[in-house]
Write a protein that binds this DNA or RNA. Sequence first.
DNA 1: GCAAAAGTGTTTGGGATACACCCATGC
DNA 2: GCATGGGTGTATCCCAAACACTTTTGC
Lengths: 213, 213
Amino acid sequence: MKYDKPYQPPVVTVDVVIFNTINNILHVLVSKRAKDPFKNQWSLPGGYSPADKMLIDSLQEISLRKAGIDIKKLQYLEQFYAFDSIDRDPRGHAISIAYFGCGHNLELEKANQESKFIPINDLPKLAYDHQEIIKLALQKIANQLDHSNISSSLLPKTFTLSQLQTLYEQILNQELDKRNFRKKILKSDLLEETGELKKDGAHRPAKTYYFKS
Amino acid sequence: MKYDKPYQPPVVTVDVVIFNTINNILHVLVSKRAKDPFKNQWSLPGGYSPADKMLIDSLQEISLRKAGIDIKKLQYLEQFYAFDSIDRDPRGHAISIAYFGCGHNLELEKANQESKFIPINDLPKLAYDHQEIIKLALQKIANQLDHSNISSSLLPKTFTLSQLQTLYEQILNQELDKRNFRKKILKSDLLEETGELKKDGAHRPAKTYYFKS
DNA sequence: GCAAAAGTGTTTGGGATACACCCATGC
DNA sequence: GCATGGGTGTATCCCAAACACTTTTGC
């Protein structure tokens, strides 16, 4: 090292994109910022990660405190990128390690108007570069859809093929052919029939399935 | 924030996996550590990233100073993961933001015995979790091979199809069928013939190609 | 002529796509 | 009976995989 002065580490923050399905609609958790910069604007839950903590533990504490969400209860959580643009925080350079998590029918610990789930197709302008972060998170999920069972984290334990297809369509942002979709999914051999039917209104009941393994 | 004391940021390091093809063999740049921990062991180039610098600028300075490599001259560079295990550095918790870069016939600015390129199939035990970092970097490249022209960064401007195939085989760590490989590559329409032939010993000369666009 | 790498086609199977109608239910 | 979403089959195309011999050169 050639530093004359003691090493001065950079500001490190963690941010998280929480995806949550409610009534088969994919939502993202956002929090209203209490302070400047971007006071009163919506943003992803996040905050500073201090020296004595692992990133994931900082994220746990921050997301619970600021947004009322317990990330330990998520069925899926993954770190996916470190955002580092010099101008992403108007206060000065800050590194943000971004995570995304997935769940179904998640609820906030203490309901408040400062945090809520918003449908991904109905998001307002967000603070910082958080719009970009969500976009990248969605891309990462889309890339994993066919090679993992990440979709199970966004569904109830048992579900119909239509529910699964609706989820795929939202993540991939395109409509899928029902017959082709069902053929592909059933051939992949990841699902098992429960034998139960789900009645859901004035139409034929649907078979329900669960993820094997 | 609920911190009573001023915010104390964590130690942040940057590490880089430099891939370099020499005589069609894929190499990785390693540096011998000058100090404990892991003194005299081989490791990836890397070091502390201070508050006043962007990660990429720290990396530039460190890799030039410690390993004699100028990452600005790389044809490709990508940040791919933040390693955060609590026990990855025996001195205490440190976050490492990992990058990988690609080049062809790269040379070190000042030749020294403390840094060198080693074939990926001939790597010694490395310090820290650097073996894992290289493994993940290779996976990331493999995932991009068919959806980007990242392979162009690991080849000379003009090259033969056999050179390209050898590169694929090393990255994917599997042998490929020559006819099927050539069909796939040529159909993808990314390459253009130069019209020149490359003579390379006691055998038939090979057509050479370059990447379009 | 012989060693060494370049170059070349066909067959087959499986997955992706396109496409339209009947079924079970609640009201 | 009608509106609503659940459920099903076939034909086509393209891509992936398997597979062996001829060509050109240096020595």
